[in-house]
Design a binder for these strands. Structure first.
Lengths: 249, 249
DNA sequence: ATTGACAATTTTGGATACATTATGTGCATA
DNA sequence: TATGCACATAATGTATCCAAAATTGTCAAT
């Protein structure tokens, strides 16, 4: 199934999934004993997993107080899109210099795959996952052609921000998807022709619009999304308690 | 001394320093028992520290084989500069919208501090550290004004790439420093006037040139820098051993 | 001499036990 | 009633111990 050799690696993946899927809620305390029990392991590999997830940004940590599911404000999400737009635009600019025959073919195949999935005139539920795979593949491919590993690394870590994750697809409005896929067409063609700046511009807008659209969708259909914790989830009592205690130490 | 409350946090900092300073060489194996002994702690907090450092990119890890000081190719370093240039340019563009009175003042104070340090007409060894602090402060300040935490996060992690770290200063050629600080002047003024694009352009070149300069310096005075591991540091024997064994698993 | 198999040793990964720090409760006091 | 302190409780951080895996060394066979 997974290629995780150690239980730590296995648990990292388990918890990441639980957080991104919303099984573990933002701000929720990650109780070591309880979690270890649930997962059927001891605290040692669990703690290892949690520190790893802390570094990759999904979990927050305070010395001697423990781990929490990290909370993201909407401004964090917006910022993630902003930076992703820049990074992937840069990827386009760089990729334009490295487009081999096979690279071109790979992009066009992904684009055609998208065409097939959208050809019915709507995105059926069973095509949602394949479409997402295609989408991820397209963006990833370009970052690989850019041959700058940092871009891919950072973009991946931005996908750990819940609503900025590429697992969110705007499936409600077919026209939006169609248009988004049209961007892919143009980006692929631009790259093939070595028009790096053009590809970059389309990509930047492609991602910037995704944020804008997310924003409007959030207001119209908030129930479609996991709650974004703008307010605090913990009781105000606990919070003041904490504030008062900390400075003493 | 440090504000590390746990020995894990303390050890993370110790090891990071050791790696960035070159005490621990790229590719070197991080032996758990030995390291724990040296640091006077048990393996548990050490392992925690190592997984944390793995995620932040300074250490590499293979299941059941252990931790190694991560090796960076020159192309990694170049890529780090490239991405940093884009990120900090973006920071400039964003910061231009958020320039408060105090923000302006803060920038100009840093610039003036630089003027003072450079006024003798050369950068004396005892001024090297203050200059570095000023430099870091300047770049950090702009990223903070940009109000997008991701930028700062990623740039910080790029500073973990040995030669891309801001602890490397090109002190040999005073004109280069002077010119670099002149960029700071212009960036500060541009931001103060709300000229985001201009500031971004200067910043991009500011960092792009730093890479170019590093490159020439590396060729002229390689002994000034810690060895960049283009070739492998481990014995070829160990390496073939590994290659042959792995596929069996 | 080289290769391959096997045992011995070392090293890593995980579980448990212990120490330390935070949290919560109750009581005394103002 | 509210506040502050002391103690009890619970949770985290670290050390130690055991199990599993990898590395090393030995030896026979070719």
């Amino acid at each position: 199934m997974t290629d995780a050799h150690t239980s730590t690696e296995f648990v990292i993946e388990r918890i990441r999934e639980a957080i991104l899927s919303g099984d573990l809620r933002p701000g929720e305390k990650l109780h070591q004993d309880k979690l270890a029990d649930m997962l059927g392991i001891s605290r040692t590999p669990l703690r290892t997993a949690l520190t790893a997830l802390t570094q990759s940004g999904l979990v927050s940590y305070e010395s001697n107080r423990g781990f929490y599911v990290r909370e993201f404000s909407f401004s964090d999400v917006a910022g993630a899109f902003q930076v992703r737009a820049e990074l992937e635009a840069t990827a386009c600019r760089l990729a334009a210099f490295n487009m081999s025959e096979t690279a071109e073919r790979q992009l066009f195949e992904l684009v055609e795959e998208g065409d097939r999935l959208l050809s019915p005139g709507s995105l059926s539920p069973e095509n949602l996952v394949p479409y997402r795979r295609m989408n991820v593949g397209f963006h990833t491919a370009i970052m690989e052609f850019a041959a700058n590993p940092w871009i891919k690394t950072f973009v991946e870590s931005l996908h750990n921000v819940p609503l900025a994750s590429d697992r969110v697809i705007m499936w409600r409005d077919f026209y939006v998807i169609r248009r988004s896929h049209d961007d892919h067409h143009r980006i692929a063609r631009a790259l093939a022709k070595g028009q790096g700046e053009r590809a970059a511009a389309i990509m930047r807008e492609h991602i910037t619009f995704a944020l804008e659209h997310l924003h409007t969708q959030l207001e119209e259909y908030p129930e479609d999304f996991l709650r974004v914790p703008t307010a605090d989830t913990r009781s105000s009592k606990t919070r003041t308690r904490r504030r008062n205690r900390r400075p003493a130490a």
